[in-house]
Write a protein that binds this DNA or RNA. Structure first.
Lengths: 164, 164
DNA sequence: TCCTAACTTCACAAATTTCTGAAAGAAGCG
DNA sequence: CGCTTCTTTCAGAAATTTGTGAAGTTAGGA
C-alpha cells in the first residue's frame, strides 16, 4: 500500500508534511493560506508549482492561490516566473530565499528604529524613559549589523557543507 | 502650553509615541492591545505601570489589560510583580527582555526543525524535495547557534556603551 | 484581430478575533 | 473571619479577516 520507495511520491506523506509545517508557520504569525502554499512549494520536487497544481493539491480556489502568492512574493519568500510559451505562471522557492526573507525584516526594524528615535527626541534623552528607549534603539542597531555578518558566515558554511 | 521641559511629562507626546510605536508592532504581527500596553510600559519612566494606570492611559477596560499582559508575559516581553503590601500588581519591561524574547523564538524554531526533520524522513533524504528540506533545516540549526553567540556579543557591547 | 486560457480583482458570506461589561475569584487587612 | 480591593474569567456584541464565486483583465496563438 505505501509507496515511498521507488521514486513514486507518496501524496499522503507530502500532505502530512505540508499541513504540519504550515501549522507551525501559522503559529508564528503567517496567515494560513500563504503558509500552506509555501509549505507545498517547499515539499515539491521541482521547488516550483503552477497555480492550478497548488489549487488542486491544497483544495483551494484560484483566488486563494493568487492572494497567498501575492503575500509570499511581498515578503520575498517565493518568486514568480512565466513559463515560456504559455500563460501559465509558476511560483518558486529558492532555498536561499529564506535568509533573504529574514534579512528583509530589516525594513521592519528600520521603522521601529524610526519610531524609537522620535520617542527619544520627544521625551528627552535624559529622562528615564528616554534612556530606556535609547538602549532599545541601540540593541536594534547592533542586531542589524550582526545579521548581515551572520548571513555571510552562513553562505560560507553552506558552501562547505553542500558543495554547490 | 507645551511643557516638555522641567521634568513634567508631556502626556500628549507620550501618547503619540505609544500609538506610533504600537502601530509598528501591530504591522509586525503583534496583536493590538499587547502592542499598546508594551509601548506604554516602554515609555513609562519607571518602566512599570499598574493595571489601573494602563487602563486609564490607554482608555481600555481591565479585561483588556489582563488579556494583553497575559500575552506579553507568555512571550517574555513583560514580567509581573506584586507590589508588597497591596493587591495591586505592576507590569514591568526590563530593558534586557527584548533579547530574551528574541532568544525565546528558539522554541518556535525548534518546532519548525521538528516538522522539517519529519518531512525529510518521510519524503526520503535523497529526493530533491528531501534535500531542499534538509538544507532549510541546516540553515535553522546554523542560525540557532549564531544567535546565542550574537547575544553574548551584545551584552559585551552594551556593557561598554552603557557602563551598567 | 479575435478567441481563449490563465491570473487577478471585487463584493459578499462565513468564520474568527477582539474588546467589553458583568460576575466570579484571590488576597491583604481590619 | 468577613470586608474590600484588585484581577481574572466568561459570554456576547462588534469589528476584522479570510476565502469564495463570479466578473474583469491580460496576453498568447490562430
Amino acid at each position: 500500500m505505501s509507496e515511498t520507495a521507488g521514486g513514486v511520491r507518496d501524496a499522503e506523506a507530502v500532505s502530512r508534511f505540508v499541513e504540519s509545517f504550515a501549522a507551525q508557520l501559522v503559529e508564528a504569525g503567517v496567515p494560513r493560506m500563504p503558509a500552506r502554499v509555501f509549505a507545498a512549494l517547499l515539499a515539491s520536487d521541482a521547488g516550483a508549482l503552477t497555480s492550478a497544481e497548488l489549487g488542486e493539491q491544497l483544495q483551494i480556489s484560484p483566488a486563494a492561490v493568487s492572494g497567498a502568492v501575492r503575500y509570499l512574493a511581498q515578503v520575498h519568500l517565493v518568486s514568480r516566473e512565466r513559463e515560456p510559451g504559455s500563460r501559465r505562471e509558476r511560483y518558486r522557492v529558492h532555498s536561499d530565499q529564506w535568509y533573504e526573507a529574514l534579512t528583509n525584516r530589516e525594513a521592519l526594524i528600520k521603522r521601529w528604529e524610526g519610531a524609537l528615535r522620535e520617542g527619544v527626541a520627544s521625551l528627552g534623552a535624559t529622562t528615564p524613559a528616554g534612556r530606556r528607549m535609547a538602549e532599545t534603539l541601540a540593541f536594534f542597531e547592533f542586531i542589524e549589523g550582526e545579521v548581515a555578518a551572520m548571513m555571510e558566515r552562513w553562505r560560507a558554511h553552506r558552501e562547505q557543507v553542500f558543495r554547490e
